[in-house]
Each structure stands twice: as C-alpha cells, then as structure tokens.
C-alpha cells in the first residue's frame, strides 16, 4: 500500500503522470537558496543552461562565477570561496565533476572541511546518445567513500528542490546527483524530506526495494505489478540520502520483509547497492539482490533502449524481485 503519510502525487501511477527533469528542481532550489541567503554563490564549468544554474546566474550575476571548462579549478575556487564564508554550489556533468576532480574534492573540500555543494548533472545511462563517456555511473561510489561527504540522489524534481534548499543550510561538503531526462513526478510539496532520512513510500511485508534517483519510480511501478499479478506485498524505500544512510529505516524494513532488493542507475559496486549491503551485513543480513550497472559501461542509444537493455525498468526489477522471493523462501 502506498504510504498515505508520504503525500505522494495522486497521479503517480497514471500513464499521464507529469514529468520533469530532476535537474530542474535543483535549479529552482538553488534560486530559492540564493534568495534567502546572500552567501550562496554558484560556480559553473561552461554548462550553465544544462545544469540549470541559468536562473540563478540571471538573478544574481554578482554571485555567479563562470569557470570555463576546468573542473579542477571549479571545486578548488569554490573551496577558497567557502573559506571566506561563502556557500558555493558548483555544477557540471557528473562525469567531469566529481569524475575528474576527485583528489581536489578530497583534499580541499573534505579534509579541509569546506562548505561546498557539488551538483553532478546528467548522471546515469539515461543520458542516452552521448554514450559511455558522458554516462556517469561511478559518482555515488566515488563520493560515498570520502569522509565528511554527504551524498544525495533525489527521485524527482520536487525532491531535488527540497534537497538543494536543505543542503544550502547544511554545514559541510555534499554531493547531489541529478539526471538529464524528464522523469515522473513522484512526490508533492507535502512529502517529507530530511537529510539523513530514508522515506518508506509504500508499505509491504514480502520484500523491500530500496531505490534512489530515477529508479524510485520504477520501483513503485514494479511494486504495483507484483501486487496485482503475483500477490506480493512490496515495501518501497526511497533512499534519497545515500550517505549518511538511514540505517534505522532500512534495517527495520529488512526485519519486516526478510529480503532486500536495491535499485539505482549507477554501479552497484560501491553504489547504493554496496551501501545497503554494508548496512545489512553489519546489522541484519537477509537475502539481497542489487539492480544497477554491474561492473560495465553504458553505450549510445535512446534512454528507453538503454534502461531496458540494462534491466533498469519495472520489468527488470520484477524479474529480480521474483528470483529474490524464491531465494528467501528456500532459506
């Protein structure tokens, strides 16, 4: 059952569900953060429109810094500004930032504990035709391993807006993962969001799906289908905040259902799948499977073709969920 306390979009399961790119929510959140706090500054590496910083740049030209195609400079200039009391948001494609500038992030943002927020847009295979070079899949793993770094992957534009505003008032380094393509609006303004908290969007007893980003929608679709065609009662947890991961919510769900499937548009090794596996191994091991990219790169194609090819859709999740249920019952 959809958790009514989550106030999800009533049109969520309709084929006509409203869609919007997750990155657009980031743009709105950044603008709002800029309006409420004059210390918020934005830096971009020659991708102002596509990372949705344009509205901020237009409204606050004196607080917008164009860096050019120089991702190492992007984060280190931001670190220097943070040391002067600014709250810099930096954006590029995730493949380049945090893809190219990891050591600078490690030293000048994390070890240095500077208040820099890194927005990585165009993450995942759904970037499509640009191909493997631009489909960032390792960002969650790269950022999650850094001490002091918070990692957030919102499930829709509304959550991205909330997350961006929340990060502007959160002290410390953070990474926010954004996707290029339009994706269904899952939440509403009333849906709760808190840094450090996972939300149980749908309650169930047979299996838990822990998902983040674009995969939350497919997890909810899969849960509906598993209920109607297989009489399975699936719980869906939105782990928008991958670090710090909400251990309490995830372990409680694992205790209740006895099996956990993770879903992400990223490498499962070190990604959300890795993070959930670590938590369960430490606290409450149950049969588990991970849906995502399995130690390989993407390629060119339409987003739909690629998601289907890599099993990152509702049918892909259903197949893995049924296998997992079988393993659970043989235990």
């Amino acid at each position: 059952m959809i958790n009514s306390q989550m106030h999800l979009n009533p049109e969520l399961l309709s084929p006509e569900v409203k869609q919007e790119p997750i990155r657009s929510g980031f743009g709105r959140g950044l603008l709002a953060a800029g309006e409420s706090n004059k210390d918020v500054v934005a830096l971009c590496a020659d991708l102002t429109d596509s990372t949705k910083m344009a509205d901020f740049a237009k409204s606050f030209p004196e607080r917008f810094v164009e860096i050019g195609v120089a991702e190492q400079n992007l984060v280190t200039v931001a670190a220097g500004m943070a040391l002067a009391g600014k709250i810099p948001f930096v954006s590029s494609y995730a493949a380049f930032s945090p893809g190219r500038n990891w050591e600078q992030i490690r030293t000048t943002i994390c070890l240095n504990e500077t208040d820099v927020k890194i927005a990585g847009s165009h993450a995942g295979v759904s970037v499509g035709p640009d191909g493997a070079t631009h489909q960032m899949l390792e960002d969650i793993a790269l950022m999650r391993v850094l001490p002091r770094m918070m990692v957030v992957a919102p499930c829709d534009a509304i959550e991205a807006e909330k997350a961006t505003k929340a990060l502007a008032s959160h002290k410390g380094p953070a990474y926010i993962r954004l996707a290029r393509e339009k994706s269904p609006i899952i939440t509403t303004d009333e849906t709760p969001f808190a840094l450090g908290k996972a939300q149980v969007l749908r309650e169930g007893t047979d299996l838990t799906i822990v998902a983040c980003g674009t995969m939350v929608y497919y997890a909810l679709l899969a849960a509906e289908e598993l209920a109607s065609s297989h009489k399975l009662d699936v719980e869906v947890v939105n782990a928008a905040v991958i670090k710090p991961l909400d251990t309490v919510t995830i372990v409680a769900s694992a205790r209740k259902t006895g099996a956990v499937l993770t879903a992400e548009e990223a490498q499962i090794n070190g990604g959300l799948g890795g993070a959930v596996a670590e938590v369960l191994a430490d606290h409450y091991p149950v049969p588990m499977a991970r849906v995502g990219m399995v130690d390989r790169f993407g390629e060119s194609g339409t987003p739909e073709e690629l998601l289907e090819h890599f099993g990152l859709t509702a049918p892909g999740l259903i197949e893995r969920a049924l296998e997992l249920i079988k393993r659970k019952s043989h235990k």
Binding site: V41, E62, R63, V65, Q72, N73, T76, V77, A78, A79, G80, M81, L83, A84, G85, K86, P88, E103, Q104, T107, T108, L111, N112
Partner: peptide, 26 residues
C-alpha cells in the same frame, strides 16, 4: 588558511578566496 600538500590546488583556492573577499568589500 587551508589544507594542502597535493600540488596544484592552492592557487585556485587563493584566487577563489580573493574573489569572495572582493564580493564582501573586505
């Protein structure tokens, strides 16, 4: 003023810092 050692990233920080100070009229 900052943490350093891995080479190449101090000048960017100094430049970002100088820009931020100028924004604040410091």
């Amino acid at each position: 003023e900052s943490t350093s050692g891995p080479l190449g990233s101090g000048l960017s920080q100094a430049a970002g810092h100088a820009l931020a100070l100028r924004m604040d009229g410091n």
